[in-house]
């Protein structure tokens, strides 16, 4: 009998073992699924936030708010002047009138604004800096220079909060990694415990097998397959949980993004991530079964 045929037989009989106890198999698979789904969801969260912030990365933006009493002429002069500087790649002038229109359209305070006799909003200039001009100290210098002009109320660097966001993201990423390690450990414990129980339940059988000349490898094989199958089914379950969660969250996120005028679609779990999840599940199952088998199988000896 060929090696592969024998392995296929063991695989089938291991599947049969799982199918014979559907209740406990289902519970184990669900527990593994939930445990694997958690780090996967967090990973997707980090991935998505990174996607959003990637658009801003590398190119610093400086917002220059003019004083309320600055004239449109002054604003235009300043914009033209700043646009010619080497650091500035492009610039955009938003006049006080434009700012008001935009605010009226977006905020829903239109009626309230009509009551005001004056426009409370200042003109502003948005500067996109050159991508090779992103040293914080240099940018700070430029900002200080702009701030010192009489018609300027405030110039600020919009990268600051993005930097902060990146630091936070790094922290979240690391936390996710730590959490993933813990949850992976939990999966290993869950699977190795079910394998341990399976070994204990089949104690007599293992004893008899050993008595009639079964090798350790032969006895071990179905348990290893059992572990791999549980890990694989658990990973499938996790994949299902994650896609349901993403589907449920997609619409509220889209709404939120719309409020911020973003063009961003939530990315779910792609084929590669799914494949990685399955491989991880199977590998963990194998590892867990291996641990349980190594610990308990050799203790069962015929007497």
């Amino acid at each position: 009998m060929s090696y592969f045929v024998r392995h296929a037989q063991v695989l089938l009989s291991s599947l049969g073992q799982l199918a014979r106890a559907p209740g406990s198999t289902l519970m184990t698979v669900c527990a593994i699924g939930i445990t694997l789904a958690l780090p996967t969801l967090l990973y997707l969260l980090v991935e998505n936030v990174e996607n959003v912030s990637r658009n801003w990365q590398g190119r610093a933006q400086v917002s220059v708010f003019l004083k309320l009493d600055a004239t449109t002429q002054q604003a235009q002069n300043l914009e033209r002047e700043l646009a010619q500087r080497a650091e500035v790649e492009s610039s955009q002038l938003i006049t006080a009138q434009q700012a008001l229109e935009e605010f009226r359209a977006q905020s829903g305070f239109g009626v309230a604004l009509d009551i005001l006799s004056d426009n409370p909003l200042p003109a502003s200039i948005l500067l996109h800096l050159n991508s090779d001009y992103n040293q914080p100290s240099a940018i700070e210098g430029l900002i200080a220079e702009i701030n010192s002009r009489p018609e300027v109320d405030l110039a600020q660097w919009d990268m600051a909060w993005i930097k902060r966001l990146h630091v936070i993201l790094k922290l979240v990423e690391r936390s996710v990694a730590l959490l993933a390690v813990l949850l992976v450990l939990a999966v290993v414990i869950i699977i190795s415990n079910t394998i341990r129980l399976a070994i204990m339940n089949r104690r007599d059988e293992i004893e008899i097998m050993k008595l009639i000349g079964a090798t350790e490898r032969f006895i071990r094989r179905p348990f290893l397959y059992g572990g791999v199958l549980q890990g694989l089914l658990g990973a499938l379950c996790a994949g299902a949980i994650v896609s349901v969660c993403v589907r449920l969250l997609r619409d509220p996120i889209a709404e939120l993004v719309m409020l911020y005028h973003g063009d961003f679609t939530t990315s779910g779990i792609d084929l590669r991530a799914f494949a990685a999840l399955l491989v991880a599940g199977a590998a963990l199952g194998w590892l867990a079964a291996r641990a349980a088998v190594g610990r308990y199988l050799s203790k069962i000896e015929p007497k």
Partner: peptide
């Protein structure tokens, strides 16, 4: 340990 199964056969 490895040789025992073959003896038993």
């Amino acid at each position: 340990r490895r040789q025992v199964p073959y003896l038993r056969r």
